[in-house]
Write a protein that binds this DNA or RNA. Structure first.
Lengths: 220, 220
DNA sequence: ACCTGAACACCGTTCAAGT
DNA sequence: ACCTGAACACCGTTCAAGT
């Protein structure tokens, strides 16, 4: 990480991804970012006018990579499905990218390009423009929320394992209570904790994708 | 706001909602919350062990109210639709509640009750348990993401109008560029800004809800 | 039981001053 | 052109001390 060469925007962005991966977006600070680059926090402000602006650049980078990895195979249903799978793959490759996109979305030109790209896929359907737009918005909302959710759940999971290490045993999720509580009949039947542990899996993600694609088809 | 009676948990929670409504979750601070209650920030820690814990209580309150407002009319499709509409209404009634739920979701007992309630609606369908669960997760993800999105978009909108007041004219969304850019053919045809202005509307929300419900039906 | 002052270890951002 | 020290106005949280 230590270099004598002058800092560039590119190096700051690269270090930002590292910091996000290591500390998460809630612990991303200008001071830590500067430390990682062997400079002082104040120096960052020569390259970027604010932390928010760094986030915007990161978000646009993600949006760009989502579009780059696109190939258009099969019918519209297959295309939409592949787009969803690929978008999630990119979101997983860039730490906290769902948060970044959610925060900065409508201002980024790349975001609009994403929208346009998906509208093309759905344009051949015999739907009102308004419904095409709603379909794509729903599709993207689902994907983003799925990853936001996964991130939060992972955070809780890490806190718990940390507490166990510290012999604190706080048990944020005391599932044992629900296991015995007869008021949650269906969840109980579904093997409560197994179901919740399966949240965030590839399988669950793809089922959601299928639901939305089938739903769009049905809207015609 | 000024009272001589001793502060209670209930008063702190009430003041928290006010603060969220007035300042948003990103400007919710213990110091501001204390000020609103005419006490000092340190005093809050006698009632709640942390800011995070206050958020957890707020989130559970929202989840509780979503369940309370429930009536079960019609077939499963109608029920699910009404649930979605009602859930969004509650999310809109409590400021930043989508963020609160997203942050604290899996640890809250009320959240599990929400899940169970929706699973009951969908339980009569001839689906694998796994797919019932995925359906509900998809449904809830969509609703939360829709409101998160609306919140962020509103934030940007407020910043812009503020800038216009300040004669800064930064134009975070310079839509005029896209309007002329021929690479966004479909969005252009759809009246670019009109479409984006329509984002977050009741109509768009309900279309998304319908898509997911039709999709779940198709999964059987 | 309930509240406070003072402190600790942080933040993002600015800006005059250095090279 | 690029970086820094020092400061400003904040954070969340703790804790001995007050009533």
């Amino acid at each position: 990480m230590k270099q004598n060469m002058p800092i560039t925007k590119e190096k700051i962005i690269a270090a930002s991804w590292e910091l996000l991966r290591g500390k998460g977006i809630e612990n991303f600070t200008m001071r830590k970012l500067a430390e990682q680059l062997d400079i002082k926090a104040a120096s960052l402000y020569w390259h970027f006018k604010s932390k928010q602006h760094i986030f915007q650049v990161l978000a646009e980078e993600v949006a760009k990579h989502i579009l780059l990895a696109e190939r258009d195979d099969g019918d519209w249903k297959e295309q939409l499905f592949q787009f969803g799978v690929n978008m999630r793959k990119q979101l997983q490759a860039y730490p906290c990218s769902a948060q970044l996109l959610m925060q900065t979305m409508p201002s980024a030109p790349e975001y609009v390009a994403l929208f346009e790209h998906m509208l093309v896929v759905v344009d051949k359907l015999s739907l009102k423009d308004k419904d095409k737009f709603s379909s794509i918005a729903c599709f993207m909302d689902y994907i983003l929320a799925f990853e936001l959710d996964a991130y939060e759940r992972n955070k809780v999971r890490l806190e718990i394992t940390q507490d166990i290490e510290n012999k604190e045993q706080k048990s944020y999720l005391n599932l044992s209570i629900y296991k015995r509580d007869s008021s949650f009949k269906i969840l109980h039947r579904m093997h409560f904790n197994g179901m919740f542990k399966n949240m965030g899996s590839d399988d669950m993600f793809e089922t959601g994708l299928k639901i939305i694609i089938l739903g769009i088809e049905q809207l015609t």
